[in-house]
Design a protein around this nucleic acid. Structure first.
Lengths: 219, 219
DNA sequence: CCGAATCCGGCATGATACTG
DNA sequence: CAGTATCATGCCGGATTCGG
């Protein structure tokens, strides 16, 4: 609904734009990379095209995203965040960590998408790791994403990394427990819930660089 | 809707609870102080009682709030944040600042409530002021709230401060511009948009301690 | 007074089909 | 590829009523 809350309040203004159904998911996908309409539609299972159209228009009116022609080889329209939209990234990362604290294992019928995996890695990253650069390629279920750490910074993206990764991680739902520290790298490998291609030492570095605590069991 | 997004993602889980209509407003009011049903209903103009009832139940199921019997003199039920709900406070403050950046002046029919004013002060506070403690009483429109700074910390509340404030500020919509730094204390007082009771020096301290930049003109 | 439950009109959402 | 068209469902907003 484009109805407001009748309050002169920053949070009310934010909620008017971001509180609409699917709006946060769309912005999250765009914090990971610019996307076309069809990319977004495929990356957000269940969203009706009508709703996607409406949200994109509203987010554009609110100066959170812009649309421009896709660069040369591709055709069509590319949606991307404006500077104002990019300001949301650390806030959504924090909100995602908050939500992830009570999220131990996937519910029936919950999937992992490229963008959700990439944004999870970004929000899980903490400084203090090896100087790098180090590139991790993570796959979980049908999703694939990569993360490159360089000093205290991290860059993430959907799909395959453009250059050969230093470590490839193939994981099931155990990835969540690995990020929580509930499961050690040794246990994860031994149980078969996680398989790697690359130096085993780098998996330990991965668990130091990416962490999301887990406070409650899965609801 | 209690429909989820079908994604194993922290942000999706957060959006399922907080993305519902009025949910963020309810939590915001509860970050300021514990409230009864009727308090919330009066502090959120336009919310239907059915929606308030439903949201309170959902937020309770998600362990964001709890309900308990109101303390002795009062009767009824008191809703308050759980520790997990309190974790949301800095995130909502950041989201409120983001929304406030594009909010220069109230739209037609937008009001200020006690809780929105109190939370605005909290999210506007920045460290580095006088050691204090200093208590400000701020009124704008029909809303009233207070803030006490003590070292680098701030405490806010709705209504009147329990002890005599060091400075009382009566403001119109110009308060937003004062917080943005667009309007100096001198200009605000001279234009009559703001009146104070207390030392004028403290108004300058107030503008140093509470600030929310303004990036775009009012949409 | 407090904390809702009930009834109802309208509109957003979700699902499917279809088009430039 | 990027949406529009159509329609059933059900949530939301507004008013009223009700038990404690």
């Amino acid at each position: 609904m484009s109805k407001d809350y009748g309050q002169f309040c920053g949070l009310a203004r934010a909620a008017q734009v971001l509180g609409e159904r699917w709006a946060l998911m769309i912005v999250r996908d765009l914090t990971v990379s610019a996307r076309r309409f069809t990319d977004l539609h495929e990356g957000l299972p269940g969203i009706p095209t009508t709703v996607l159209t409406t949200r994109l228009r509203e987010l554009e009116e609110s100066a959170v995203i812009t649309r421009r022609a896709a660069p040369s080889p591709a055709r069509g329209v590319l949606y991307e965040l404006t500077p104002r939209g990019r300001d949301l990234q650390p806030i959504l990362d924090a909100l995602g960590r908050w939500g992830a604290e009570a999220m131990a294992s996937p519910r029936e019928s919950e999937v992992v998408t490229d963008s959700s995996l990439a944004s999870a890695l970004r929000s899980a990253h903490r400084p203090g790791g090896l100087a790098g650069p180090l590139t991790y390629h993570v796959r979980s279920g049908a999703a694939s994403a990569w993360a490159t750490t360089r000093g205290d910074e991290v860059t993430v993206g959907p799909g395959e990394p453009s250059s050969d990764p230093d470590l490839t991680i193939d994981a099931g739902p155990e990835l969540r427990l690995l990020l929580a520290g509930t499961l050690t790298p040794e246990e994860a490998l031994a149980s078969g819930g996680i398989a790697i291609a690359g130096a085993r030492r780098l998996l330990e570095e991965f668990t130091r660089s990416f962490r999301v605590p887990l406070s409650a069991p899965a609801p």
